[in-house]
Write a protein that binds this DNA or RNA. Structure first.
Lengths: 188, 188
DNA sequence: CTTCTTTTTTATCATTTGTTAAAGGAATTT
DNA sequence: AAATTCCTTTAACAAATGATAAAAAAGAAG
């Protein structure tokens, strides 16, 4: 749990008392590689913190599996478009490695917001950071070539290449697996 | 001002008193077509509400003007990546039509957050909606062809095609002007 | 209205990325 | 260890998009 507190502190420091209130609405999950955390069609009612492991959010387009997002340890896993709109998500979450996860009940968290604005502020800031990341990713997809995007990923998260299959990395970058393979071949 | 209240109510209803507190930290701006609202390199310290007109956020990549975002009336104009990180933005804001704008001082708004959690919640929800839009745009850029993206834009915002130059629309869609012209030619 | 500037279209060619198929490797299961 | 399945690479060709240049059209300015 200390790990979660440390994560929180980077965004907004809350009292020990407030932290314990959050602790009370969490549960611990341990998933084995390839297990599903949330299924397509379910409305997101849980916010996950990935203590250890690796996860991805994906969806199907024309029967193809597309990785929408990759999440490394020490990050939140949330299907934002479902949580914020309270609508079923077309996306699923699965872990790509054995993972330890803290699940936070979203409804109970909203209730905590009412009694404790500091908690609301904490999560506001967490999601703001994620919002900024999303915006930066748009810039990358909007006007960088596939090769540039691949290089950017290696630069920022070199470990991802080793831990995630190239199939998933390709769709995450918005290209086909074959195209990624070609780019990698030229690099060497 | 009523227009702003109506806009707010869609996200979270606050008291008349709270609304008046917000009103006190706003100023009205009228800009002529092509005038700049914020310059590149400035840190975003103002949240704008576009009452009337049309605006865009843009930046320069290798000397090319790239439209990052188009904003229609009745929406907020914010350089989120700058506001949330309190860092200088590489992006600028300009209006594409004569526009009426309400400027909200971000620092004073943060102060209001402290004394009134309902105001913080209102803006949290406003930005959450914008976050969701950003995520949906990623999906579009990640795996839809240029032609699909163009059709989506026409579908969702047909008026944009008439009000914004194709040059700006092209870069917004992540393609060149020439490429967009070609796509349009095939359509007819 | 005429001139000047900017935007949009068209054409040609180069480059990138997609598609399909096949082969080689790696990992998993039996 | 062998068999099976899934992942990755390679190759050949197709399709989409980019780059450049020039013409046409539209808009702004005098």
């Amino acid at each position: 749990m200390n790990q979660l507190k440390t994560y929180f502190d980077d965004f907004h420091v809350i009292s020990q008392d407030s932290f314990e209130k959050i602790e009370k609405i969490t549960t611990q999950l341990n998933l084995k590689k390839k297990e599903e955390l949330q299924a397509i069609g379910k409305t997101c009612k849980t916010i996950y913190f990935l203590k250890k492991g690796l996860a991805r959010i994906y969806y199907l387009k024309d029967g193809n599996d597309i990785t929408d997002n990759l999440i490394l340890e020490n990050n939140m896993i949330v299907r934002v478009e479902s949580l914020f709109r309270n609508q079923p998500s077309r996306k699923a979450i699965e872990v790509l490695e054995d993972s330890e996860i803290i699940a936070i009940d979203a409804q109970k968290l909203m209730n905590l917001y009412d009694e404790n604005p500091q908690i609301e502020r904490l999560f506001r800031k967490i999601f703001e950071a994620s919002h900024v990341e999303t915006i930066n990713r748009i810039e990358s997809l909007q006007f960088h070539s596939a090769e540039e995007r691949y290089k950017e990923l290696i630069e920022k998260h070199p470990e991802v290449i080793k831990r995630v299959s190239l199939k998933h990395i390709a769709s995450y970058l918005g290209i086909t697996q074959v195209s990624l393979s070609r780019i990698r071949a030229i690099q060497n």
